[in-house]
Each structure stands twice: as structure tokens, then as C-alpha cells.
Write a protein that binds this DNA or RNA. Structure first.
Length: 648
RNA sequence: GCCAGUGUAGCUCAGUUGGUCAGAGCAGCUGAUUUGUAAUCAGCUGGUCGGGGGUUCGAAUCCCUCCACCGGCUCCA
């Protein structure tokens, strides 16, 4: 008999060689039906793998990430089996599960696969799943593994095996398909009830451009049809929220081939929105002691030679601009920090002056490969809400706390309530990779960790993810439909102060090197606006939206009254406009709804007589009749509630 | 950059196997209508069917090429 310890610390006895599935059955039949994988002594296992000694056991269902991962990994095998049947002789690369589903990289040897072929593959997958084939784990020697795939003439699997250690190699067999695989897998295929292949993509073998490009097929599966249907609805919703679509519809921004790809044109409404966001942040920063600066869009090559950016990125940047007479070389600025370092250097600093916080909405230009460009999230010219804090090493923690406060305030105000922070530290086994003294690194890393803890951030620590010049803290938000985005960042930098020979005079009358902190709570205005659009589906917070109110006179007769309402609202600093087209009210309402204007004020005979407005809220409907003053107060109160934290 | 897909009026899309196939709705313009909580009616203006080559008696439709857009291009068996 062996002892199995469950997560609640209860211990149950089973015969040696029992499986996780047996344990599940002993707990309840429902659990046995729903369990997908298990964790035995901390390792994710197949349900039907025998347990031969005392062990701790955790069972996973569809509700656990590990359960989904196993489900999708098994689905990848099933897809491969289906494809092998439909396209005999194809070669397989890797087929892992991913956050939403799975993919398999396949060499179709010249044949191209498109979404037209998906239906047949999907049908085949379901057909195979219904056969209820079991996944059988088999441990094989390296020689056996090589033999098998040599016979199958699959160069990719052989390439993978090459890097594996003998004795750790396993095969999984299901139906007629055998794959090199670490596992784990579902006991059998019957749980896979619904499948959707999503798209294809070219993917280089092992991600290396020098290797052959394979066809990657993405798919997702579910234990229930209904769950697939829900997922498809979610995809539809994401499409509706696509910032490129909404940006066009709401006239926020545009692109022009003539201007150049990846170079956004901010239309009046978009510029208005962006300016409001900038003002908002400027006000917050002013209170936090930031000093606004402005620097030019180009910089002499020497600046970037000093900063080190020339050496690192010179070849992959827009190429230099030359002056016609002197032949001087200028680069479009890819970062604001070198300029800010030079601003710091315009005068000597005392330890008493620090921290110095220089802020700029600085537009930078970076070359991105044409295929990498994407709406506003990946562009070649963008504006960072940049600032550089020059401080003493002992001030790093306090400055981090202050920046985190700003980020939290922004997230709260803009309704990003689900976020995590990633702390990126240096790789402790590879310290030579990094610039700066051990002492400073340790100080900075513990400052970040302590600051995050004090602010109660949900954090993940990643070792080895730090930049060579310093540790950092990145913020990831989840939007309204659950997608993750990386936004703000705070980074410590020991490199630039060194390169620009930044100094301050300490209390000991000696010269010291300040620490530099880069930070951008939004990240970039372009990216942030894109994420914001998708987060709120184009329905911006009232304080931010370009048009807050539209006045809809019932007919021409009430236009004068509409103008009077407009003037009064303007006195309350409410942004309003009048729809004076000769259209019926229903049409005007419809158009205003589609433009996502938060409030519609319908004015006609009754309202004019009583000096009131009839209020309709976007996507909610009629709110009733209010005096103009009462309405203005409601709006301003709503805005103040949203922004009130600012006053604390 | 690479692989796959798409490219028809400002927008959303029809256009059968190449032969009145250059269309519709919305938007825009003109006029009528003076309107009460998601589309008033009528008329009109919009397009070298992404660009350029080719095949053909004939191309939006077939082929080549270029351009743009779109989905991706290590979440490592």
C-alpha cells in the first residue's frame, strides 16, 4: 500500500501502481469524469500513469490551467494525427499548447494549406476523437527514438532528439500516431468534443530565420460545444473592439500610404483624446515634482555613440540624416534619455537637489520590419510619456514607490482593475552580463521588491529578464475581455549615468554618480490609446471622450433653444455639439449612439417651455427630464468622482 | 524581411464556369419633409474593380510582378 496526500493534507491509502484516475474515482464519479491531468510530487502527470510510491497528488480539471494545457496538448497530437491521415508524408515540428489552444508546426513540403482546408481537418479530428483512442506513454532509449524517426524521415524530430538526454525520452501513442513527447496527456481522446482551427502562419523551425519555414496551424478545442461557441463569441467581441476598426469609425486616427506605413495620423478627435490624456498625466506629474522639458526630434550621431545606442541599434535604425554642407550626421531620436542626460549635465548638482525628474512627451522613431507593424500598437513613430529620474542610490526605493503610485492612479482612473507587475531581475548565474556594481544591483533589486510589496502589487519575479543596464518593473493589464497587454514600465539604469558621466556632489564633498530611472506609465501614447480603445470598446470615460454631449433639437424650431443649452453647457466646461440636420429624432439618436457619445439631450417644445432637457444616456436609454443646471452638475459630479483621487 | 490570406465607390459588401458585370446599401450632394428616444422620402454625384505587365476576339474574373492591408514568425518534444 502507498500513501497519497491530497491538497487538503488528507492522506489516503492505495495499492501500489494505482493511477491518478483511480484516486479521482475513489473521491467521486463526477471528479473522475472531469479530471484531465494530475500533479504527482510537483510534476504534471498523465492520469493513467502508475504511482509506485508515497506521493502528493493534485487533480486538475478544465478549470485549472494545467488541465487546459493537457487538454490542448493532447488536441495538438490529435490534429497531427488527422493531418497525417489527410496529407500522408508531411513532417512534424513541434506542437505545444499555448495560452488559448495549441499549434503544430508542420512541413507540408511545398503544399500550401489555407483556411479552406480547415473544415476537412476539423471533421477528421472529431472523427478520431470519437474513437476514444488512449494516449499511451512509452519510455524509449535515444537509439530507439532516432531509429523511429529516421524510418519516418522526419528531420525535425531528429533535430529535437539530438538535444535530449538518453533515458529521459518518451513517446506517446494515440490511435495511429506516435509522437516524441514529454507529455502529459489525457487518458483518451473522448473528452475532445469541439474543435476550431483558427489560422495558419509561417514559422521558422526553431524560430530562426535561417531555418526552413514551416506551416503553423493554430487551433483550439473544448470539452463542450457550448464552450467553443462562447469562445467564438469572445473572438467576435474582440473584433468589434479592434482599435483599428474603432479608430476609423470614431475618426480617431488614420494611416496613409503616402505618409508612410507605421506612421499614425491623429485626426482631430483622436488628437483631442490624446491631448486630454497628456494633460491628465502632466498634472499628476507636476504634483509629483516632475519638471517638463522639450528636446528635438533628431540628435547628432555623437549623442548616440556616447549613449551606446549607435553601436547597438545603429544598423537597425532609420539611417542618418546628413547636413548638405558640413556632412554632419543626425539620427531620428529613438529614445529621449540621451537628451535628458545632457539636460542633467547643463549644471552641477548637489545631493540636496536630487532627485531631478525630467519629463517629456517625447516622440521617437524606430525602424520596425514592415511585417511587424500593427495599428497603433506597433508603429515606427510614437510618443513616449517619458521621464527620467536622477537620484541617489538611497532614493531608488522611494522613487519607485512614487512612480508606482502614479501608475496605480492612472489604472484606477481608467478602469484597468486587473493587472500584475513583473519584476525583472538579473540572472544570478550570469552576473558578468550586467553593468554596474554588485552592491548597486542588490540595492536596486531589493528596492523594487520592497516598493512593490509595500504597494501591495500582485507580482511575478523573473530572473534573468532584467536589461543589461538595470532591473525593471513592468505592468501587465487585463482588459475588459480578458486579454493581456503590457503597458507601463519602470527601469533602473546604471549604464547611461556612466556613459554621460553624470555626477552630483555628495555631503562628503565628493563626486558621486546618480542612478537613473526611466519610467513611462502609459508606455507610449499610441499603444496606450489602442489598449484603452479596446478595453472600453470605444466608450471612453466621460472626462476623456472628445464629445460628451450631443443636443438633438426635435425640429428646426428649437434650434435657438439648442444653442442656448449649448452655451450654458460650455459655461460648465462640458463639451457638446448640436445635431441640427433635418432628420427625425430617431435617426439622430441612432447616429449619436453609433458615435458612442455618452449623453443625448433631446429638446423640443416642452423642454423649451420649461427650460429643461430630456436626457438619454448612450446604450442605456432615457433618463428623464432635468434642468440644464441639474444635468451639468450630474456630469461634473461624475467626472469629479472619477478624478477625485487626484486631489489627495 | 519571410510564409499564408485579402485588395471592387468615403464605409460595408454583391458580382455565377472570362461574354451589357461595373452593382447595392450606408455616407455625400440637391430637394421635399419639421419630425419626441436606434434608420422620412425622392433624385443625383461617386470606381482605369490596389498598380503594372501578360494570355485572349474579349479580363473585376486566368497567369506573372510590384504595392498595401491582414493573420502569424520559440508560449520551445
Amino acid at each position: 500500500m502507498i500513501n497519497i496526500t491530497l491538497p487538503d493534507n488528507s492522506v489516503r491509502q492505495f495499492a501500489e501502481g494505482t493511477t491518478s484516475l483511480d484516486v479521482a474515482k475513489s473521491i467521486s464519479e463526477g471528479l473522475a469524469r472531469n479530471v484531465l491531468a494530475s500533479k504527482v510530487n510537483g510534476e504534471v502527470w498523465d492520469l493513467n500513469r502508475p504511482i509506485n510510491a508515497d506521493a502528493s497528488l493534485k487533480l486538475f480539471t478544465w478549470n485549472d490551467d494545467e488541465g487546459k494545457a493537457t487538454f490542448w496538448h493532447s488536441s495538438a497530437h490529435l490534429m497531427a494525427e488527422a493531418i497525417e491521415l489527410l496529407y500522408p508524408g508531411v513532417k512534424f515540428g513541434i506542437g505545444p499548447n499555448i495560452e488559448n489552444g495549441f499549434y503544430y508546426d508542420i512541413d507540408f513540403e511545398g503544399k500550401s494549406i489555407s483556411s479552406d482546408d480547415f473544415k476537412a481537418i476539423e471533421d477528421k479530428i472529431i472523427e478520431l476523437a470519437q474513437r476514444k483512442s488512449t494516449f499511451n506513454r512509452k519510455e524509449v532509449s535515444k537509439n530507439e527514438a532516432v531509429d523511429y524517426f529516421t524510418k519516418k524521415a522526419d528531420p525535425y524530430k531528429l533535430d529535437l532528439i539530438k538535444d535530449l538526454e538518453d533515458g529521459t525520452i518518451s513517446f506517446y501513442e494515440s490511435g495511429n500516431f506516435v509522437d516524441l513527447c514529454r507529455g502529459p496527456h489525457l487518458p483518451d481522446t473522448s473528452n475532445i468534443k469541439a474543435v476550431k482551427l483558427l489560422n495558419t502562419a509561417g514559422a521558422y523551425w526553431r524560430g530562426d530565420e535561417k531555418n526552413k519555414q514551416l506551416t503553423r496551424i493554430y487551433g483550439i478545442t473544448f470539452p463542450k460545444q457550448k464552450e467553443l461557441a462562447e469562445y467564438l463569441v469572445l473572438l467576435e467581441e474582440a473584433k468589434k473592439r479592434d482599435h483599428r476598426k474603432l479608430g476609423k469609425e470614431l475618426e480617431l486616427f488614420a494611416f496613409s500610404q503616402k505618409v508612410g506605413m507605421g506612421l499614425p495620423l491623429w485626426l482631430p478627435k483622436g488628437a483631442d483624446l490624446r491631448a486630454r490624456l497628456e494633460t491628465f498625466l502632466k498634472n499628476v506629474q507636476k504634483k509629483a515634482g516632475y519638471l517638463q522639458v522639450i528636446t528635438p526630434h533628431i540628435g547628432n550621431k555623437e549623442l548616440y555613440v556616447t549613449s551606446g545606442h549607435y553601436e547597438k541599434y545603429g544598423k537597425d535604425s532609420f539611417q542618418p540624416i546628413r547636413t548638405p554642407q558640413e556632412g554632419e550626421e543626425f539620427f531620428l531620436k529613438p529614445m529621449n534619455c540621451p537628451h535628458h542626460c545632457e539636460i542633467y549635465n547643463t549644471k552641477p548638482h548637489s545631493y540636496k537637489d536630487l532627485p531631478v525628474r525630467l519629463a517629456e512627451f517625447g516622440t521617437v522613431y524606430r525602424y520596425e520590419q514592415s511585417g511587424e507593424l500593427h495599428g497603433l500598437t506597433r508603429v515606427r513613430g510614437f510618443t513616449q510619456d517619458d521621464a527620467h529620474i536622477f537620484c541617489r542610490p538611497d532614493q531608488v526605493k522611494e522613487e519607485f514607490i512614487k512612480v508606482i503610485d502614479i501608475v496605480l492612479y492612472i489604472f484606477k482612473t481608467l478602469d484597468f482593475n486587473d493587472f500584475t507587475a513583473q519584476i525583472s531581475l538579473r540572472d544570478p548565474n550570469n552576473k558578468e552580463k550586467y553593468i554596474g556594481s554588485d552592491e548597486n544591483w542588490e540595492k536596486a533589486e531589493s528596492a523594487i521588491i520592497e516598493a512593490s510589496a509595500e504597494k501591495g502589487l500582485k507580482t511575478v519575479v523573473e530572473l534573468g529578464e532584467a536589461a543589461f543596464y538595470g532591473p525593471k518593473l513592468d505592468f501587465m493589464v487585463k482588459d475588459a475581455i480578458g486579454r493581456k497587454w503590457q503597458l507601463g514600465t519602470i527601469q533602473v539604469d546604471y549604464n547611461l549615468p556612466e556613459r554621460f558621466e553624470l555626477e552630483y556632489t555628495g555631503s562628503d564633498n565628493q563626486k558621486h554618480r546618480p542612478v537613473m530611472i526611466h519610467r513611462a506609465p502609459f508606455g507610449s501614447m499610441e499603444r496606450f490609446v489602442a489598449v484603452l480603445i479596446e478595453h472600453c470598446g470605444g466608450k471612453f470615460p466621460l472626462w476623456l471622450t472628445p464629445d460628451q454631449v450631443i443636443i438633438l433639437p426635435i425640429s428646426e424650431k428649437y434650434e435657438n433653444y439648442a444653442k442656448k443649452v449649448l452655451n450654458l453647457l460650455n459655461n460648465y466646461e462640458i463639451r457638446a455639439l448640436i445635431d441640427d440636420r433635418s432628420e427625425k429624432t430617431g435617426k439622430k439618436i441612432r447616429d449619436a449612439e453609433l458615435k458612442k457619445i455618452p449623453f443625448m439631450l433631446i429638446v423640443g417644445e416642452k423642454e423649451e417651455a420649461e427650460n429643461t432637457v430630456s436626457v438619454r444616456k448612450q446604450s442605456e436609454g432615457d433618463l428623464g427630464t432635468f434642468t440644464i443646471e441639474a444635468f451639468a452638475n450630474i456630469i461634473n459630479e461624475e467626472i469629479n468622482t472619477l478624478l477625485q483621487l487626484n486631489n489627495k
